[in-house]
Design a protein around this nucleic acid. Structure first.
Lengths: 217, 217
DNA sequence: AAGAGTTTGTGAACGTGGGAACAAACCGAG
DNA sequence: CTCGGTTTGTTCCCACGTTCACAAACTCTT
């Protein structure tokens, strides 16, 4: 479930505040969701709460970590060390949560050897060897859109089965391979859409149900 | 709708390939969605297709752009110029789609004046003045988690009503303000979760419905 | 030990979104 | 002009996720 990481983060915050135990209501507000939803989500993992008391923060945190798979080590490869790849390589949120960046790859050979976040950039052609050596299962694509599908295909044939894609392209992959896409400009566009709606409502167009046909010749 | 940007991107690709007209089926596969869903989405904007023929690529592209609000100019402020803020400032996907970064702000005064992506970093305290001067409606938060809520509050009181949050925290905002959260490590965690499930299936645990209670003392 | 007060876990209603199927509409050939 | 082929726009249906509401279960006080 996509909300488990959010719960985990909320639990970490509570733990930092030295809160030992919490109710579903508290945790739900901290995570920004409905308490019933939270309880149902947690009940899918097992009965880790105590009725009349709540959840033990430390214990629940461990159980969610285990469910997500954060108790094991996940070697990760990042391909495309441009501005974004650079930022991802330095992002502390990865390393602090069981993800270990084992290699930074770039197709531009002139960058090979350059030191980024304590790792030397290596040539993209080394991908397969690195995947096999470290047992990499997760790859991150931070290349330009034009290169993304090719990189993706080579990741899949090298044995990677989970891909996090930052390139603004729809990737096609065989069954059994998971792709998650993070599209930065799409996020801004969605905000702009809502912003525009808000502006229209305030300017008095509110009562008219938008048909989209007004003003079109 | 959150899929409009995806359609828009697909249309741009078709336009680059000099495709003048396309059916819902073609566009749907290019966008990676079901054709019925695409038609239903588009019909919400108006009747921009022709039965028996399909959609005019250029015309549909303009209509979607207009619906999202990309035909107008959106000034954007980025707060927190660390690794990620740096990458965002340089990200071409923003500027090429009607979004104009008008200021980069950072709380660390020692960085004021530093040149990033052709803009000088300015002090965070200038936020309100900049928002009013440029009519900024969209803010991007790329600060550490600890500072995010404070930055968010000041953005809201300065008049910003749409926020793109990259800090790993749930932001609380008053009604009428939109927040979209992009959590990089959550994305990786979700991949790890699916990856773990795949690994478990292959190792023979498949027939057992996971209860989460096995192996717990 | 019993009851009052909490809080979890879950069963049932509700609403939303997705997908298949079909009617309406358009084009081109004869 | 008519008819067959094609494609959109829409309706209906289903399944999923969310939320409400309540019973089960636990703690603490008396």
């Amino acid at each position: 479930m996509a909300r488990l990481p959010v719960y985990l983060r909320a639990l970490n915050s509570l733990l930092e505040a030295e809160v030992r135990s919490c109710s579903s209501e508290e945790l739900a507000t901290a995570a920004g969701v409905n308490s019933a939803k939270l309880r149902k989500d947690l009940s899918h993992l097992g009965s880790y709460g105590t009725r009349g008391v709540g959840y033990d923060v430390e214990y629940l945190r461990y159980q969610i970590s285990r469910e997500i798979g954060l108790t094991q080590d996940w070697p990760v490869v990042i391909v495309g060390i441009g501005n974004l790849g650079h930022a991802l390589a330095n992002y502390s949120g990865f390393s602090s949560r069981g993800f270990r960046t084992v290699a930074l790859l770039d197709a531009d050979d002139s960058r090979t050897g350059e030191l980024v976040a304590g790792l030397k950039i290596r040539a993209f052609r080394e991908l397969t060897a690195i995947v096999h050596e470290h047992g990499v299962a997760i790859g991150v694509i931070a290349t330009p859109a034009a290169a993304a599908q090719s990189v993706c295909d080579q990741m899949v044939s090298a044995g990677i089965r989970s891909i996090l894609n930052f390139a603004p392209t729809v990737l096609t992959v065989p069954d059994g391979v998971d792709v998650r896409m993070v599209d930065l400009s799409s996020e801004l566009q969605i905000l702009a859409y809502h912003e525009q709606r808000k502006a229209q409502l305030q300017s008095g167009d509110a009562p008219v149900v938008a048909t989209g046909s007004e003003g079109v010749a």
